[in-house]
Structures are given as C-alpha cells and as structure tokens.
Amino acid sequence: MITFFETSLFFGVSISLIAYFIGVVIKRRVHLAILNPLLVAVVLVIIFINIFDIKYDTYNEGAKYLSYLLTPATVCLAVPLYEQLKLLRKNIKAVILGILSGILANILGIFFLSKLFGFTHELYVTLLPKSITTAIGMGVSSELGGIVTITVAAITITGILGNVIAEGVFKIFGIKEPVAKGLALGNSAHAVGTAKAMELGTIEGAMSSLAVAVAGLLTVLTASVFAQMM
C-alpha cells in the first residue's frame, strides 16, 4: 500500500481535496473561526501522512499540481482589481496611507519583538518579510541573509492565522469598510488572506490583491534599509 502511494500521481491531490471538503463541512456545521477549512485540511493531511508514515515528498509528488495553479490564480487577481479601479481611484489616499502604515507597523513590530526576545540579526531579517507573499518573501530573506526555511514557515503561519482571525479582528476593532478590510487582509496575510477577502466580497478581494502586490514590491525595495536597524 505504501509503495502504491509512492508512485500515485493522484493520491496527494485527492487527499488534499477530501481534507478541504471535510473542513468545509465542519465549517458549515460549527461556526468557529478556528475551524477554518484551510487549517483543518492542513492538519488532517499532516495527521494522515504521519499515521501512514508517508514522506512529504511522496505526498507532494501529486499535490504539487495544486500549487502549480498558484501563479495563474495570482495573475487572475487582476480581474477583481480591474473591476474595482474606480473605487481604487476614489479612495487612493486612504489606500496608500493604509498600506504604508501597515508595512511600517510590521517592521516596527518585528523590530521591537526581536529586541524583546533577543533575536539575532539573522532571525530578525528572517522574520521581516513574513507578511508578504511566499515567493517574494523567500527572495528577500535569502538576499538579506535570513534562514529561508523559517521565513517560509513564518509566512505560512501568518497567512493561515490571518485567514482564521480576520473576521474576529474586524469585529473587535470595528473595521467595517470593505476597502479597509481588504487592504488589512492583503497587507497582513498576503495571498492566503486574499483568499479570505474573496470570501468576504469582491471589493475586499480586489483591495486585498492590490495590497499583496504593493506590499510585496515595497518590501523588496525597502527591506535592505530596514535590515540595517538591527
């Protein structure tokens, strides 16, 4: 049976999709933010491959075709963005200030917590790109001399966390404007946050995609400056 998994092309995809649907069903029955379909699916797959002692590479042999679609899907985020261009122009000042303040909050937050925990320079630059999309974050981290594996882990945890807590955070902090919700999700939790923003609405989704692209590009341009802070 195990050898079959090692050669199967559809095992990884199937198990991921089934796990996701279990997550969707649970979400429908129990309305708890922590029971987020993505999080449930990830936990279920990890448990499953550990029980059957299947290596990640074996699982990923098939599952990687799901991630293959990530680039075309990101390209498609231009569609909601294009449809909301009028709204973007109307709120351009709020959008720019919102994204910039969020990026600044991220850097200062990581800086002070790194000081507090006594992180090394290496770990500080490893965590700096944690709120931007994985592909950009990896590049920034390696360029600054960070530990790329940990950057990827931090980015992934950030994304899933942002996806899970967003609705609660918006409620507690009284964030009601769709534009504000979208930018907040994209800025804090990159593409995984955008997936949540898309569920909330098209305006949220469009603004979130915008924040992912802008925050990613700005981080590329500024990270080396902020890396000198510590």
């Binding site: 959008v95 919102g98 909050a105 504000a180």
Partner: peptide, 19 residues
C-alpha cells in the same frame, strides 16, 4: 508570538488607518 502579534498589529493598523 512575534508572528501572532505582528499579524494582528498589521491587520488592525492597515484597517483602522484606511477606514
């Protein structure tokens, strides 16, 4: 802890400033 705190921080700051 750093990831949790800064993710909430960025979300709240971006959202509140934009709004």
């Amino acid at each position: 802890i750093t990831v949790v705190v800064t993710t909430i921080l960025v979300m709240v700051v971006t959202g509140r400033v934009t709004q």
